[in-house]
Design a protein around this nucleic acid. Structure first.
Lengths: 214, 214
DNA sequence: ACGGGTTTGTAACCTATGTTACCGAAAATG
DNA sequence: CATTTTCGGTAACATAGGTTACAAACCCGT
């Protein structure tokens, strides 16, 4: 638990009006998570809506065999639509949120959701926008796996990773890429080599550098 | 336009309380669509929320190359979450709703959405349930394409089709199956033969009959 | 019954991807 | 420094699924 939430909540000042910000400061609890930590497995009950104050959260689908598929990232100043939606979800289906790096969450008890939706237009707008964005990203995920080949998916993955890390150099093992794309490490290595030959990226020192014409 | 909406709206009486039903009868417009008709391409603006009064609607993703992927069906007494969500969606992404059979829609101008969400708890609950269901179905779609092989996807497709048509006999060309699964007709024919050899279904007279141990 | 369109069966082939195995390099650990 | 673990490169192979082509069966209108 952190001492001075107000400092963090400025990340949301462009979305939220001052009265909402004040209420948020009063009623939310800050939580720190370390990179790699599993924040929640959606599928069980959720008692708090998390706003991401700092860091990056990775949201993935985990199927019954434990295979992973990356769905999208949540960045600071955003939230996760799943938790808006799925508070009462009972199925076996699991969506897992993992801290991609050290992160700070502002947790809002779900009991405030209803009230705020009515009271704060900016909260309502935020929720709606978030829902819409996540929905769009779900469609994108479906597109990727349904219509695209692995090399293109890998390229998109790297671009996204680069965008999130805010760097053209990416530091991630082939194994991890394989996990997040739901494929095999060998396939990833093969395709990375191919892309290197096509001058779309450079591999050195176990890092991947994206080139401009990727 | 049909004469007696009240008769149709009984489909919703289990979800909606009487005052909502009355308002629905007053303010919605009934629309008939013929099987095969495209009802809407979500991606442009939507000015009305459709409730499905009679029939079955197929909802698919259509990618940039025009390839289709079946997402889910909407049955009578349900609605389509996409339209709740995506009223303002601007992207190129297209979700297409097609009448699977002759159907009747009750269209509610979107302007009533807000008001009803506040005024009618049963409307709010309906919208939330619908959102949740569709969301779950999106996850299922992702699972299918990300983790399952074509034979299993075909089986699930046939089961779903059978459930929707309420019959163990399915009447659909291999080409159409291929379209809806986003694959090739030859692949479908091949797999259907394989499943027939495994005694999971019968093919006769260009119809497909599912057997119990499918 | 004839002819043209549609649907299905099937073969032959190709490519993408999954799988296993093994080696060497690099990194971590003691 | 020595040992162990992790990671990446690569080969060899298996399989699913996409592609093309063509013929047979069927459907329908005249």
């Amino acid at each position: 638990m952190l001492d001075h939430p107000a400092k963090y909540l400025t990340k949301f000042s462009e979305h939220f009006d001052p009265t909402l910000l004040a209420e948020l400061e009063e009623k939310s609890m800050l939580m720190e998570v370390k990179g790699g930590d599993v924040i929640l497995n959606i599928g069980q009950n959720i008692r708090a809506v998390p706003l991401l104050v700092d860091g990056v959260i990775k949201v993935s689908r985990i199927n019954d065999e434990g295979q992973e598929l990356l769905l999208y990232y949540v960045k600071e100043g955003e939230s996760c639509a799943m938790t808006f939606n799925c508070c009462m979800l009972t199925q076996t289906s699991v969506i897992r949120a993992t801290a991609e790096e050290d992160s700070v969450l502002a947790c809002i008890p779900v009991s405030f959701m209803e009230e705020w939706m009515q009271k704060h237009p900016s909260w309502k707008k935020f929720v709606m926008t978030t829902l819409l964005n996540r929905f769009t990203e779900m469609i994108k995920s479906i597109d990727e796996v349904a219509f695209k080949k692995m090399d293109e998916r890998l390229i998109n993955y790297l671009k996204e990773k680069s965008r999130i890390a805010d760097s053209s150099v990416i530091n991630v093992t082939h194994q991890q890429i394989g996990n997040e794309l739901g494929t095999n490490r060998v396939v990833v290595s093969r395709l990375l080599k191919k892309l290197e030959n096509e001058n779309k990226l450079l591999i050195y020192n176990k890092q991947i550098k994206l080139l401009k014409d990727l």
